[in-house]
Structure formats: structure tokens, C-alpha cells
């Protein structure tokens, strides 16, 4: 039997479950759209359809996330072969992590992670 079958089945069932739940709302509820209901909720204030720019800090957070995620992935790889690589592996990975720690300290120092 194809060993990847369970993942595919569960994925399919999960998506189907989500769609069914969404469908319940769409098809089973009464449908009387009024202008008031269709408006976006802003606590009674009339909606200002302005499109502001969001802060650029989200972008920076996402990029730093990618970079440290890559580091985490390499560390997982090292963890698997830790015992076979012994001290040699530790030194290698230590160099890797230290370079990244330098980057992290740079980020801290320039205050790029300040959130107001």
C-alpha cells in the first residue's frame, strides 16, 4: 500500500470538513441581506473605505522568520546525526550558529525589532 495514503486521505477529509462547515453556513441559514448586515463592522462608525498602508515591521518580522527558520531546520538535521558526528559536528554547528548570533545581535542593536 502506498505509505503516503493516510496523509492524503486526512488532508482530503480535513478540507472536506472545512468546506462542509462553510457550506452549512451558506446554505442552511436564512438569507435576508440588508444593507446594514452587509456593511463591515466598525462599532457603529460609518466605514471609511480608506486603504492605509500597514507598518513595514510585519515585512521585517517575516524576513527574519524565514532566516531563523532555515537555521532551525539545519539544527534539526544536526540533531539527527549528533552522536555520529561528536565533537567535529558540534564545532561545525557552533560556527554556523555563532555567525547567525552575530546577525541576531546586529538586529537587536539597530533596533529593528522594536514594536512601538
Amino acid at each position: 500500500m502506498n505509505p503516503y495514503l493516510p496523509i492524503i486521505i486526512i488532508l482530503g477529509l480535513g478540507v472536506a470538513l472545512g468546506l462542509i462547515l462553510s457550506g452549512f453556513a451558506h446554505f442552511l441559514g436564512p438569507r435576508h441581506p440588508t444593507p446594514a448586515k452587509e456593511e463591515i463592522f466598525e462599532c457603529g462608525v460609518p466605514t471609511v473605505a480608506s486603504r492605509e498602508r500597514m507598518s513595514v515591521k510585519f515585512y521585517l518580522t517575516a524576513i527574519l522568520f524565514i532566516l531563523f527558520d532555515i537555521e532551525t531546520v539545519f539544527l534539526f538535521l544536526w540533531a539527527k546525526a549528533f552522536r555520529s558526528l561528536a565533537w567535529f559536528g558540534i564545532v561545525e554547528v557552533a560556527v554556523f550558529v555563532l555567525i547567525l548570533v552575530a546577525g541576531y545581535l546586529y538586529v537587536l542593536k539597530t533596533g529593528a525589532l522594536e514594536w512601538d
Partner: peptide, 12 residues
Amino acid sequence: SILILLAIVGSV
């Protein structure tokens, strides 16, 4: 790791 460091500095 050096490439990642460059990316960090560049994005900041």
C-alpha cells in the same frame, strides 16, 4: 550561514 547573515543585514 554567511549568506543568511548577509540577508539579515540587507533586510534590516
